[in-house]
Simulated scan of single mutants.
Amino acid sequence: MRVQENFARNIQSSFKEEGRAWLEQLPELIQYCEEKWKLQIKEPYCLSFNYVAPALRKGGGEVVIKLGVPGKGISNEYEALKHLNGIVPLIDADLDKGVLILEKIEPGNTLSELTNESEICQIAAKVVKKMIVSTPPQTHLPSTLDRETDMKHICKQSLDQLGPFSNATLKRSAKVFAYLNKTMKEPMLVHGDFHHYNVLSNGPDSWVAIDPKGLIGEVEYDLIQFFMNCLPENGAFGVIENRVEQLTQELNLNLQRLLLWGYAHSVLSSAWTVDEKTGNYDKLFSQCPDIFKELYHKRFQQTIDDFLEKAS
């Protein structure tokens, strides 16, 4: 069995020895799934951190099988799939083996394939409006407090510079995280990784979200990754500004908190892309913190530093 090279690297980088062992056992796991659910698993899609492939059912019809290293990632996705609305339907699962069986979305085109920005934002707003629910009781899902902890850890580990970011930028992001978490009034269960590639067409004028991470936080936070994706090489400021305006209106969001979350999360998300060995990082993502900082100054006639000083 040949495994996609990028997928193998991701698994081994993220899960170390556990990941290497899981990759070695992957053929046996696929056979186990075929026997347990009476499936014929076909060639996988382009893979990142999970083995995802269409599969034929013995009685007819297709499903999608998702295999991941057992643990919090798969368990969190399972819980999110059970609670969120307007999400790809979950058929069955075996969490001990890291297996999710999902309904196959047809035709399955992603939101990234559309070109009209206004239409893209309208669809995204409809999906988000339907998807978000109240925080489920006794949940073990991560929250934006965990993201704040991640940011603070990065600050401590990067005392000078991390990729394009100074330690001052990292600390500012951590302070914004702390303020927004402290002042959050009504945390919700949100997708946790909402962007163009995780919204699929499900028939005429119908779209659903896939691959939820499951996160407790605000809708304003959940949209930031969407704003950062599918940006042009030139003119990213205007694209993000228009997305912010349209989604703020359509979802009745708090613009100030949205832009502050935009700054905080775009620093964190960009920091995650930095390869400390090579120094490489995602250059489209890394321009976003300055864009959100400029948008905040433009809309509220003060800098984020001024805001933090007054808020402290």
Rank of each mutant, 00 (worst) to 15 (best):
D94Q: 02
E148K: 04
H83R: 14
L180I: 13
I132R: 10
L159W: 09
L81E: 01
L170D: 00
L100E: 07
L84A: 06
V99A: 04
D146V: 08
Q161M: 09
N109A: 13
G86T: 05
H153T: 11
D160H: 15
E79W: 10
I154D: 00
L81G: 03
C121P: 03
E103D: 10
Q138H: 13
M131A: 10
P107H: 10
K171N: 06
K66I: 03
Y179H: 06
A168S: 12
V133S: 02
H153A: 11
L145S: 15
G86F: 08
M131N: 12
T149H: 03
G108I: 14
L67K: 02
D94I: 05
L111D: 03
A168F: 09
E79L: 11
V88C: 15
L102D: 06
S166F: 05
H153C: 04
I91M: 05
I105E: 01
G71R: 07
Q138F: 14
T144H: 02
Q122I: 12
P70E: 15
T110V: 08
V133W: 03
F177Y: 12
T110K: 08
I87K: 01
I74R: 00
I154H: 00
L170R: 02
P137H: 07
Q138Y: 15
K129A: 08
C155K: 01
R172N: 08
P136S: 12
K97A: 08
K171Y: 00
V133M: 11
E148M: 09
C155D: 00
V176G: 02
T149F: 02
K171Q: 07
S134L: 04
T169P: 15
A174V: 06
H83T: 07
K156C: 00
I123R: 12
G98Q: 03
F177I: 03
V176T: 07
V99E: 04
G163Q: 09
K97T: 06
V128S: 02
S134M: 04
L100A: 06
L159K: 13
I120S: 04
I87D: 00
N76S: 12
V128Y: 05
L114M: 12
V127Y: 12
G108Y: 11
N76M: 07
V133P: 00
L84C: 09
E119F: 15
I74A: 04
V128W: 01
T115I: 14
L141T: 07
G86L: 06
H83G: 05
S143H: 07
K175L: 14
Y78N: 13
P107D: 10
I74M: 09
N76A: 15
L141N: 03
T169S: 15
K156M: 03
K126Q: 14
P70I: 12
R172M: 13
I74S: 03
V99Q: 06
A124R: 05
Q138D: 14
P137S: 14
L111R: 02
L100C: 14
L145I: 14
K156A: 01
S143N: 10
H140M: 09
A93P: 15
D160Q: 13
Y179S: 08
Q157L: 01
E77P: 03
I105G: 01
N109L: 07
K129C: 05
A125D: 11
S118L: 08
G71V: 11
T135K: 08
N116G: 05
V127P: 08
P107F: 15
E119D: 11
E103Q: 15
Y179N: 09
K97R: 13
N85L: 15
L67A: 06
T169Q: 10
N76R: 11
V69Y: 09
